[in-house]
Design a protein around this nucleic acid. Structure first.
Lengths: 161, 161
DNA sequence: CAAATTTATCATACTGATATGATGTTTGAC
DNA sequence: GTCAAACATCATATCAGTATGATAAATTTG
């Protein structure tokens, strides 16, 4: 697998937040429902992204998560860095010292692929993916609209059941 | 990480066997010593490669593992396939159905990288890597010579200590 | 056949990533 | 100030990948 499941989750969540369209915070529960992952685990993941300066969080009613960086300036590398240090993606055989004088057998041929992937993560922004998304089959995209829906129950008095 | 540690081990071991130069079987212990990994775990890994038709094994004295395919016809894809199904490398977000009508947000941009990597694994053979290896810093390569050394203790009578 | 050598296999343990449930903390509305 | 909403955090559980040790099975040598 190219990305750990946590890194995938992070990327997916950031896309959800960026794609929600609204400028008001998106709640963990809503994101977890959309991407189908455990709430508390996602909460931890989003908290890491917050400490990394990718998101901003707000507690209390009408709280949730917002992007801390405009989508056009937020690269995939920034989002996945806290979960997948780039250093671990470099040597095909997993040798920590590969790339220096002491290269592994695959180094020469593999480095070119690894470099391309690295460039992809550095050059691709959340805005790029958002722009592509509608073009992709959009059952996933459709679910995003639920994030834009009425989110704060206003003062209608207590909800009746 | 691009390859699981077991897949890395498999690749490394196959390189050792192919690079030993001798046409006689290489023992698990010797390989484990060279690549620095647990003997029994490697044994299991090599057994999987044997069932996959990549290696041939022989038990008993002067036994060990041989390539079942000449290095020039053995691709990296064949070696790692039993440990890392290619299907798991395709979608950046880990969606099983990605690539069809229902593509993920990253699909369009990522597919090109994933394809290149796939081609790399399909097109690169063990012979290619062996040819590169001496050009690489060769502390690792040097250790291979130990695999070529006198391996079967011949009938000289009991070894004296 | 007996002994030595080597792979094959099994039961179990360890480890890190992932997941869960309970509880704490902050915030906004009334 | 109280309450409810939401994130934050902690302790623990689960799971898959990795590792270990013991034992079985096969093969060669003599």
């Amino acid at each position: 697998m190219w990305l750990s499941s946590t890194a995938q989750q992070a990327l997916h969540a950031v896309l959800c937040i960026a794609g929600s369209g609204a400028d008001r915070p998106v709640r963990v529960d809503a994101i977890a429902a959309v991407i189908g992952c455990p709430r508390n685990y996602l909460s931890k993941t989003l908290h890491v992204l917050t400490r990394a300066g990718v998101l901003r969080s707000r507690r209390g009613p009408a709280g949730g998560f917002l992007l801390a960086v405009p989508p056009s300036q937020l690269t995939l590398a920034q989002v996945i860095a806290p979960f997948e240090p780039a250093s671990e993606r470099r040597c095909l055989l997993g040798r920590p010292t590969c790339g220096d004088a002491d290269a592994c057998a695959a180094h020469e041929r593999w480095a070119c692929i690894a470099r391309r992937a690295e460039e992809f993560f550095q050059a691709t922004t959340i805005a790029h993916l958002l722009r592509d998304w509608p073009r992709a089959g959009s059952t996933a995209r459709a679910r995003l609209t639920s994030l834009r829906g009425p989110q704060t129950r206003r003062a209608h008095g207590p909800v009746r059941r």
